[in-house]
Structures are given as C-alpha cells and as structure tokens.
C-alpha cells in the first residue's frame, strides 16, 4: 500500500555527524557487504573488474569544500574546509518515493517509520528514484528491482545477533563514531538529545519531504588569524609582508619580472 501512514509509532533513523566523519568509506563497504547477503536480492555490480565498473550501493560518501564568503587567506592557507558527507535514505515522513510507486512495492512501516521496497512487487519503473531528491534509491541492474537503505531491518530486530550488533551495519562499523542510530520520534532518546544539542538539520527542507535522518553541522572553527601568535597575526594577511631576506628578494624580483612580462604582452 503506497499511501503513507498518518503517523508512525517510532521514527527510527540515523544522525550523521558532519564534524566527525573522516570520509573513510568504511560504512559504504560495510553496508554493501551486509546488504548483499541480507534483505532481498544481492546488491549487484556490473563489470566489477572491467573497464567500466559500476554497481548499486545504498550509502555513498560525497566530499564537499566550503569556502566562507569573507574567509581569510594567510600564506597558502585559506579558511576553506572539507566536509565529508555520507548520504543514504533519510526515511522521510512525507516520502514521495512511496506515494509515486504504482505497484505497492514501496511502503513506509507504521511501526517504526522505515521505508522499504518489497522486491517481489517492484516492476523496476524507476519512478521512486526520480522522486527522491537525495539520490537514495538505485536500481539494481541484475535483479531489475529498486534498492534502498533498509535501516538494516534484518539486524536491528535480529535476536540471533549480539545486542551490540543490533544496529545498522554502517553505524556499527564507523570508526569515527560519526553515525548514530535511534528513535527520532522520542524526544528523550539519546539521539534526539544529540540533535537538540548540536543543532541537527534536515537536507533540502524546501523539498517538503520531512526527512527523519538528521545531519549535525561541522563545529565552528577559530578564524585563521586567531590561531597565529598575536604579533604575527597583524602582518600575515598578505604573504609578501612576511617575506624578507632571500625570499623577500625573490618575491620582489619575480613580481617585477611578472609585471614587465605583462606589459610586453599587452
């Protein structure tokens, strides 16, 4: 049934700490490994050892660079920072991927809010992937059915696993502790408190999907100048001011040569 439940008893989901993630892709591999042998068809690869390898993954890590508008530039350093960005299904409350599904394969569970695909019903039309702004669904080209994060539904309720392992594979694996799992519908859960404390946010709120998963912003950093000893900080805005002696001479000469060259060309 691809109409959404009005409410769900729990809102199980992930919280991703963008400050802590080191971009090691361990969760990507752990996810692929667990889900290729778990729920539904295997996660296939196409030409894994060929010239054009590709395959389906349920979790991918993008890496972004953020450059502050009036960021300082000191010597060769800028205040640009790198943010590793894990991305998987956000188990949206207003999941468009569920309502667009014509076959009833995509559904959101009333008991815990997990969004799943019943692979026995999916006809591989791909419309759900079109409706997801986050790129969280990938068609498996071998099985011809849609694949997405299951929140490791076959681990978290699995009594045959040790209790410590009854969390999603990505969370269990993350060596940096950047991934957290819990009930975001319960304001007293550890994970909800974490979101509260760190100002967790939604991805693309303007798309109107009300994602369950939250992201924790990178912590503020000191400005570059503030990290330098006081007297240095005054003079370091421009590299040439700090260069003296031999390097000062090189800098001046090259600057002069450069400007002569430019004149010659024009």
């Amino acid at each position: 049934m691809t109409s959404l439940p009005a409410t769900t008893n729990k809102k199980l989901g992930l919280v991703i700490d963008l400050d802590t993630c080191v971009g090691c892709h361990a969760c990507v591999i752990a996810c692929k490994e667990w889900n290729t042998g778990g729920y539904g068809n295997a996660l296939s690869d196409q030409q894994p050892y060929g010239a054009n390898p590709s395959g389906s993954f349920l979790n991918r890590i993008h890496t972004f660079e953020v450059v502050p508008e009036d960021g300082q530039v000191i010597d060769q350093s800028t205040e640009a920072r790198v943010v590793h960005f894990p991305k998987s299904c956000l188990h949206c409350e207003d999941a468009p991927c569920v309502t667009v599904c014509p076959t009833g394969a995509s559904y959101k569970r009333q008991e815990d809010g997990i969004v799943l695909v019943d692979e026995n019903k999916c006809m591989g039309c791909g419309l759900c992937a079109w409706s997801c702004a986050y790129g969280a669904r990938e068609m498996d080209l071998a099985a011809g059915v849609m694949k997405k994060c299951t929140l490791c539904v076959d681990r978290i309720y699995n009594d045959s696993l040790l209790e410590i392992d009854r969390i999603p594979s990505c969370v269990r694996t993350c060596p940096a502790g950047a991934r957290h799992f819990g009930d975001l519908g319960d304001p007293n859960s550890d994970i909800s408190k974490l979101v509260e404390e760190r100002g967790g946010f939604d991805l693309m709120p303007e798309q109107g999907n009300s994602p369950t998963n939250k992201y924790l912003p990178p912590r503020n950093r000191e400005s570059l100048a503030a990290t330098l000893p006081q007297d240095e900080a005054e003079t370091t805005k421009d590299i040439t001011k700090t260069a003296d002696g031999f390097f000062g001479w090189v800098d001046k000469t090259l600057t002069k040569l450069g400007s002569e060259n430019n004149q010659g060309e024009s």
């Binding site: 502050p68 991805l203 912003p217």
Partner: peptide, 14 residues
C-alpha cells in the same frame, strides 16, 4: 540547501 552547509559559505564538490 542540499548539504545544509550554506551557513559556512559557498559549497562545491571536492
């Protein structure tokens, strides 16, 4: 908005 990092500055894919 896709990354939620707009408050830090201009975002580009590295």
């Amino acid at each position: 908005t896709a990354t939620g990092l707009g408050h830090l500055g201009k975002v580009r894919l590295l």
